[in-house]
Simulated assay, not measured.
Amino acid sequence: MIAVIVMLAVLAAVLGVICLLQRYELYSVEKQLKELSTENTNNLLRSSTGTADRLVTEINRLLKEIRKIRVEHTRKSHAMEQMMTNISHDLRTPLTSALGYIDLIRNADISEEEKKRELEVIEQRLMRLEELINSFFEFSKIISGGKIPEKEVLDPVGILEESIVHYFDDYESRGRCISLYCPQRRLKISSNRSMLLRIFDNLVGNALKHGSGELKVSIVQEDVLRVTFENPAEINELDIEHIFDEFYTTDISRTKGGTGLGLAIAKQFTEMLGGRIEAKAEDSVFTVLLEFNV
């Protein structure tokens, strides 16, 4: 009888110690959670006594999931901020051009034939502006909602030529030119027209802002579709390493008012379309290579 009482007393003492340890563990978990809620940290909970390991493990799993969701939310918000930063510049370009031609028609002494040509240019610029506005709505839905881009079978040569034509006058006004090498005139690819045009626009526009001399563009389809943009530019290995980073600008691009978004957006859209983009610099020649599955 005495032995039974002693065993019960020992068991009660052990249970009491376990309860005390678990109570202390819960207090420690509560204290750590309060600290984590007020700090921007990646720390996880630590078990003080080992009596609530399963609880601590589960809470740490939830903490990791919450942080993952928070990072993804921050990324999407940042992507939207990028887009809004870039919208003002992209919309202003065709609008400013159209206003310039309107002022020319209004104030210059030009013939009716010349006015007709200028009005056609204005129409092209305003149509370009409308296309950009429509595209931005689509881009915002894709980026913010993780929406898969809608694809269709299209001719990448025609889209590339459209981008080159858009910048042709700007290059010519700077004493520069664009050459296009395309041995196959009719190519087919499954892609998103608006996003592909934006990629080409950003790369041609980036070469205009930060490059010099002739921009050589080639588009060839073999096992994959390869599009290459090549022009002289002052760039080093550090620039190449970070060239596709968001908001990254070189010393040269800072003096030219670059936003550091053009190539970052080109990279993002290329990857969203299932493609690959890379850059390299050799002998003061800057090259960007695009590859898409056909």
Rank of each mutant, 00 (worst) to 15 (best):
V294M: 08
L208G: 00
G50K: 12
S88C: 09
E112L: 15
E162R: 07
E282C: 05
R23Q: 08
I133L: 03
K141H: 05
E234K: 06
M83F: 05
I102F: 11
L104Q: 06
E172Q: 06
I110P: 07
D90N: 12
T85A: 01
L180C: 10
G100Q: 05
I252P: 02
M272H: 10
R67Q: 11
V14W: 15
F244P: 04
N107Y: 13
T38F: 03
T49G: 08
K64H: 09
T85E: 03
L11P: 09
T250S: 14
V227C: 14
G175S: 05
A207V: 01
I240K: 01
V29F: 06
Y27I: 00
E214I: 10
C182A: 15
I235E: 00
E25Q: 05
I18C: 07
L187R: 11
L55Y: 02
R75G: 12
Y101K: 09
G146W: 15
I105D: 07
E246M: 09
M1I: 08
V224K: 14
T259A: 00
I18V: 12
M1S: 15
F168T: 07
S48R: 13
D223H: 08
F269D: 15
R193H: 08
L273Q: 03
E278L: 05
V157L: 06
N202C: 01
T270L: 12
Q32S: 07
G158Q: 13
M84G: 09
E72V: 05
L196H: 15
E120F: 05
S253M: 05
N231S: 02
L91D: 10
L63N: 06
A52Q: 13
G205T: 10
V165W: 13
R23V: 12
L33Q: 10
F247V: 01
N192W: 06
E282T: 08
I142H: 14
G145Q: 07
L119S: 04
T259G: 00
S135F: 13
Q268M: 06
I59N: 00
T250Q: 09
R193Q: 10
L132Q: 10
L36V: 01
Q184M: 13
G275D: 06
G262F: 04
K141S: 03
V157P: 08
F269Q: 15
G274Y: 03
F286H: 01
G145D: 07
F269G: 15
L104H: 09
H78F: 00
M80E: 12
F244L: 07
D201W: 06
L104K: 11
V157W: 06
I189P: 13
Y248E: 01
Q268G: 08
D245C: 02
M83N: 04
S47E: 12
P156C: 07
G175N: 07
